[in-house]
Write a protein that binds this DNA or RNA. Structure first.
Length: 491
RNA sequence: GGCCUUAUGGUCAAGGGGUUAAGACGCCACCCUCUCAAGGUGGAAUCACGAGUUCGAAUCUCGUUAAGGCUACCA
């Protein structure tokens, strides 16, 4: 039999990363088994209708490369694939249950509950035919509830959690059809999964508790229930150390936000594929095709996983480094808008410095923006490793200055010039590069070496900064003369 | 509260009676190096607790604890 899985999101307007992971696993399982992956929109809650929300779902699947074989937008022989368009179907099946005694009309108010807090008090469970008819004639609003057995147990088998049995008296008479005639998720999902020939239901484990009720529904209809594969929850670490379901307070949790921050879709997919599943090998970097090839229920982990942004960063950095120059420039360009002009103009070059230095594209801004603020601190010229103090730095810079002033500002030429100067003067390369780099950037930490920084700043600006540094160095040397005498005396 | 589920380093996790308890991220150190990255090498760090079964338990059983979920006319 052909494997058919489905992804059944409700259109909320954004795609939670946990949801995307469910879609991924459903897709991978179907494709690994040469089956079909179906998209169904679960929009039975009309109060929560969000404009444009289905588009978010289509876009997400498209960007993540999870191509569905059937769905509202691509069609298929089991449509319609939007639940709000299937209203009559659910009504029909609900009435079948009514007739077979597995469901009943309930005319209670919406807030009718039992005092102890456990579910509905079953007030309407045993209404006489006359009472029901009377209420119906009076056009009293009603819902249809599932008539769950009061005794016995219900058992189902989950492909990852194993066999689970519950007492029927712990199950409530859940609503199947709402007052507005729409089905609840709990009912619609059973009807649709059957009608759409779904063979494997893959969903979050928060549905485990409801599965016995679905099981009862399948039995009432005389249907063969699909196999279930429940997935652990993706959690987030709270500030106080506790964990809870991944939500906004933990960071970006929607696929879109992550994309905006500059994570690559492939990296996100790769990372979340390893959350709750392991390939039983040491491989960690997987393309989607490789994921399809290796995916296996055996590797699904039962315990919850905490989303680790640091590890996502690592995956993303791996994917970024693999990008060829052209695509890196292309993808990174939108993140350079607020950078100083001179860097934007030289982005072709600056991007090569960025590529190995960022985890995500939004790291670009902080990487380069400091270059716009030039505030020299003469202490930065002191560097023990290169045996540099202010005086030697000044000497080097002054000596070097005319050479740079007449130099051709190309990276290779600059680096060559600098290197040649060092060897000519029997100087360690670092001893020369350090003061030059500091002199033009006013920073000890820069995304590249002296040559790269000079080139990035351009000749005019570099010369200006060089002059300024020399001036400041000269002044700082003059003032505390008494102190510097010591070093001179030592020579 | 009731019911269901889960429990190996900080995180993802392998291992399902005998292992020096893999690997990855992160962290630390070193190497490379004009700084920062990248890359390389190495290191610290784990079986929630208590009983039981067994020659032997991270692994099987029971209990405890902790965490999460469900208990909606949400999904």
């Amino acid at each position: 039999m052909e494997v058919r899985t489905r992804f059944a999101p409700s259109p909320t307007g954004y795609m939670h990363i946990g949801n995307l992971r469910t879609a991924l696993f459903a897709y991978l399982f179907a494709k690994h088994n040469g089956g079909k992956f179906i998209l169904r929109i679960e929009d039975t809650d009309q109060k929560r209708y969000v404009e444009g929300a289905t588009k978010v779902i289509y876009d997400t699947l498209k960007i993540a490369n999870l191509k569905h074989d059937e769905g509202p937008d691509v069609g298929g022989e089991y449509g319609p694939y939007v639940q709000s368009e299937r209203k009559e179907i659910y009504a029909k099946y609900a009435h079948m249950l009514l007739e077979s005694g597995h469901a009943y009309y309930c005319f209670c108010d919406e807030d009718e509950k039992e005092e102890q807090g456990f579910g509905y008090n079953r007030h309407c469970r045993n209404l006489s035919l006359e009472e029901i008819q009377k209420n119906l004639d009076e056009k009293k609003p009603y819902v249809i509830r599932q008539k769950v057995p009061l005794t016995g147990t219900t058992t189902f088998h989950d492909e990852v959690y194993g066999t689970i049995t519950v007492e029927n008296d712990s199950l409530d008479d859940q609503v199947l059809l709402k007052r507005d005639g729409m089905p609840t998720y709990n009912f619609a999902n059973v009807v649709d999964d059957h009608l759409m020939n779904i063979t494997h239901v893959i969903r979050g484990k928060e549905y485990i508790s409801s599965t016995p009720k679905y099981q009862l529904l399948y039995e009432a209809f005389g249907w063969q229930p699909p196999k279930t594969i429940h997935l652990s929850t993706i959690m987030g670490r709270n500030e106080d150390g506790s964990v809870s379901k991944l939500s906004k307070r933990h960071g970006s949790v929607s696929f879109n936000n992550l994309l905006e921050e500059g994570y690559l879709s492939e990296a996100i997919v790769n990372y979340i594929s390893l959350l709750g599943w392991n390939p039983k090998s040491e491989q960690e970097l997987f393309s989607l095709d490789e994921l399809i090839q290796h995916f296996d229920i055996d590797g699904i982990v039962k315990s919850d996983a905490i989303f680790d942004y640091k590890k996502l960063d690592w995956f993303n950095a791996q994917y970024i480094q693999k990008l060829d120059h052209k695509s890196f420039v292309e993808k990174s360009l939108p993140y350079t808008k607020n950078l100083p002009k001179f860097i934007q103009q030289k982005w072709e070059f600056a991007s090569t410095l960025a590529q190995s230095r960022i985890n995500k594209f939004s790291d670009i801004q902080p990487l380069f923006e400091f270059l716009d603020n030039f505030k020299i601190d003469t202490n930065l010229f002191e560097n023990k490793k290169n045996k540099l103090d202010k005086q030697t730095s000044l000497d080097i810079l002054k000596d070097m200055f005319p050479l740079l002033a007449s130099a051709d500002f190309e990276v290779e030429k600059l680096n060559h010039l600098l290197a040649k100067y060092a060897t000519d003067h029997e100087m360690k390369i670092g001893k020369l590069m350090w003061p030059v780099r500091i002199a033009v950037t006013a920073n000890t930490v820069t995304p590249g070496g002296a040559g790269e920084m000079l080139y990035l700043l351009g000749k005019e600006e570099s010369i200006l900064r060089l002059k300024a540094s020399i001036q400041r160095l000269t002044r700082s040397r003059r003032k505390p003369r008494i102190n510097t005498d010591e070093t001179k005396a030592g020579k």
